[in-house]
């Protein structure tokens, strides 16, 4: 047998002693953060797929974006500032809970949620005022699909933050030792933020240059 269910004096015994009574599922170190990061690597590659499509079509096109579908830069730039700074704000919440400060966590997460909602509202306003739609031409196809897909991720991140806030109402749900959920929402939010920086560079700045 590769292994036996015994332990004897020749072999290190701590294994059996520490794990022998750990019958229940979940009696292993918390791996959820690692799982989330693995998932986000995969999720990020879906964006890479969309970005690649955008860049290849950009390289092949005579004019990119075509004349009737130029992008607006001011509003997205404001949105970028809001989203990037919200990543710092959410980290303050994480720092607070590591010191056991639930009120601080709630304060910073509420501000983050408001900034996220502002970003989404700004994006909706941008869609309504651009003057062209999803089906206008290949550029607008790419533009709406990619920014929309990112917007969907902001929306999911917002729900995660609201979920953390909802759970934090319960006394002692989060504390100095128990805050994996808080951390995961934060990591997801950073992911959304990083993707936006790439997206803003590729779709907005490259299109204006």
């Amino acid at each position: 047998m590769q292994g036996t269910i015994e332990s004897n004096s020749d072999l290190p015994t701590p294994l059996v002693e520490t794990h022998g009574d750990a019958i229940d599922h979940g009696e292993h170190p918390d791996l959820r953060v690692l799982g989330l990061i693995t998932f986000l690597c995969s999720e990020g590659l879906m964006f890479v797929g969309f970005f690649t499509v955008f860049l290849v079509y950009r390289a092949a096109a005579a004019a990119w974006p075509p004349e009737e579908t130029e992008v607006e830069l001011l509003l997205p730039a404001i949105n970028t500032v809001i989203l990037v700074s919200s990543s710092f704000v959410i980290h303050l919440g994480d720092t607070a809970i590591k010191k056991g400060d639930v009120a601080g966590l709630r304060k910073w997460y509420i501000i983050t949620a408001l900034m996220g909602a502002t970003f989404l509202a700004g994006q909706v306003y941008e869609y309504m005022t651009l003057g062209y739609g999803l089906t206008t031409n290949l550029f607008s196809n790419c533009f709406y699909l990619t920014t929309g897909f990112h917007g969907l991720h902001v929306f999911i991140g917002l729900i995660l933050i609201l979920g953390v806030l909802w759970r934090s109402r319960r006394e002692g749900h989060y504390g100095t030792e128990h805050h994996v959920g808080v951390e995961m929402a934060e990591i997801y939010w950073h992911f959304v933020d990083v993707i936006w920086i790439v997206l803003f560079t590729l779709i907005y700045i490259l299109s204006v240059l």
Partner: peptide, 18 residues
């Protein structure tokens, strides 16, 4: 009780340690 490895996964024809 979780098992403890005493030999490799393919140690055929070798005397197990225990």
């Amino acid at each position: 009780v979780l098992p403890v490895l005493t030999e490799g996964p393919y140690a055929y024809g070798e005397e197990p340690a225990e």
